[in-house]
Write a protein that binds this DNA or RNA. Structure first.
Lengths: 323, 323
DNA sequence: CTAGGTGCAAATAATTTGCAGAGGC
DNA sequence: GCCTCTGCAAATTATTTGCACCTAG
């Protein structure tokens, strides 16, 4: 299912499965958050002659090698999770069944960054845990769970965000085109609206492909929580357009939206290991970048045209003054 | 400095200082986050004959009694903090000097609540920790620190938020009064603007009193991070006013702002133990409640006046039809 | 007198380490 | 043969517990 990493340190034609490789391989085949003891149990099922000490040593080695991450759920012992894919995710921890669920929240991350800055603190990593009771333990039955397919969920949520942003971008540019007087400026906005629309359709197709891979995908709960950062930028921009602005201001608002959007998706996407979700964010950032460049070019053109017009006015008034 | 709690379980005329009382009293005199061992060290300074086991037992007793809270900073052992005053606060943890700093963030709490809801999870408590390097360890010198005077800081930040909200409330009502056509409705908005203004001055006086108690207070870093929830409600309301609304809509917008504000400050304030900050939030919530009632009364009056007018129109057209 | 508090030492529990032997290139 | 890995048992660390004793009400 998951494509295992290269088991660093193993020669391509590796001979016998040494203990370490065996432990690493078993660990990577598991999902969820294992305690050292859980891992010993699983491993003993296929090989009796493995010492607890070796498991501990291998776990430490995996942490150093970046394969595993040590997490503390406050149980008085550590657990270990795969460390590739989403870095810096957060946890929901059921105090009854001790099951754990992951989530991402760029919103919380942004707030944490603000706190760290305000307190002159250089953050390395953050721990966010919600301790409580999971639905299963409360109601008895298990609902659609996250099931560890976080890759697909991440891609799904990244696409949803990208689509929502494209949609509000489309609305923004349609509105901007409607209120722009200058024919050339209007054309730029119309083209951008057109592009946003096309790209939105491409993203929706990609979303459908994803659904085809897992028909249950759409019923699964949100994994990536996201609203502040980029979402709403275009909506806010559209509101500002309604207050009555001139062509130049409309371009500036567009630039501000695209730049915010580009920066955010690039920065956020780059945090992740190679994955479909990451790619969606980076593709999207690139797209926003193109739009940004287009707007900036147009803005410069507009300003220089106005400058020329003003110059000729100046010339005229100059001549008038000299008269 | 801090007023110690009643050392629950101690009979009023308690005789000799039993060990437990001694340990509790030493614990409460400390500040920061102590490990069991730290506490043993401190206690041994005044009494050699205290067993580690007793300290552990007393710590557990304190946790059960609600005097202390057990926290896990991922060091492989637990620490204990005073549990009265701010519940559910979060931590900045320096990986170098192992010092710890506290902060509150209603914004993060709100997001965590959303995540829990979306995942059908019943949250009990949340852990939020930012691990990194503190300013002291990075630059060598200690800046204005929080110094454990969290009570004052909490009160200061609560006041700041209340003042900011009053200010935007004042602006909102001034604007509403300006655009209201109906004389009676205008009077209501003017009165409210006036009230917000007076209350703002009272809050500012209270703020100055606070500053008098600690001249350094204003230079200390933010303790309570806060922006989403209530702040901005009136600003948003004011924006909606600008879009051109009738008197009735203006009242509805005001009602929505006051209700949101009231609910938020009440709910948030109630979380805390008795403290100045809590009182500020609750006073403020009560104030918003009064305004809310006033607006609702006015809204009903307006609607009933309109109803009467419409009725009389109906009557007239009825007569006309019967003619 | 008696329930609960306390000290001491031993028990637990998770994890680490010393050391001698094993295994692979 | 050399170097690293591994198993085993002992050590370490934080915390808990059993048990006999003590002490205040």
């Amino acid at each position: 299912m998951t494509n295992l990493p290269d088991l660093a340190g193993l020669k391509p034609g590796g001979k016998r499965s040494t203990k370490r490789e065996q432990i690493v391989s078993v660990f990577l085949r598991q999902e969820g958050h294992l305690s050292a003891d859980d891992l010993v149990d699983v491993i003993r099922r296929e090989d009796h002659r493995i010492s607890r000490a070796t498991v501990y040593r291998t776990l430490q080695w995996m942490v150093d090698a970046g394969i595993a991450r040590k997490v503390d759920f406050g149980e008085g012992r550590f657990r270990f999770e795969h460390s590739y894919r989403q870095p810096r995710h957060f946890h929901l921890l059921c105090t009854t069944c001790h099951d754990s669920f992951e989530f991402l929240s760029s919103d919380i991350e942004a707030l944490l960054a603000e706190v760290a800055t305000a307190r002159h603190f250089t953050p390395e990593h953050s721990v966010v845990q919600i301790h409580g009771t999971c639905e299963k333990c409360r109601t008895g039955e298990n609902s659609s769970s996250v099931d560890g397919h976080t890759d697909l969920l991440f891609a799904r949520d990244a696409l949803r965000i990208a689509i929502a942003t494209e949609r509000s971008g489309f609305e923004f540019y349609s509105k901007a085109a409607r209120i722009t007087k200058d024919a050339r400026g209007r054309k730029v906005f119309e083209d951008l609206a057109q592009e946003e629309h096309e790209h939105m359709e491409r993203l929706e197709a990609r979303y459908d492909e994803l659904l085809a891979r897992d028909p249950e995908l759409e019923t699964r709960p949100t994994f990536l929580f996201f609203k502040g950062a980029a979402h709403g930028l275009f909506d806010q921009g559209a509101e500002r357009l309604m207050k009555g602005v001139n062509d130049q201001q409309a371009l500036l608002i567009g630039i501000r939206c695209e730049r915010g959007s580009h920066r955010f998706f690039k920065k956020y996407g780059e945090q992740f290991e190679e994955s479909e979700g990451r790619q969606i964010f980076l593709d999207f950032a690139a797209e926003e970048r193109t739009h940004l460049d287009m707007l900036v070019r147009e803005y410069r053109a507009l300003v220089s045209r106005q400058g020329r017009r003003r110059h000729s006015v100046d010339d005229r008034s100059g001549r008038r003054a000299a008269r």
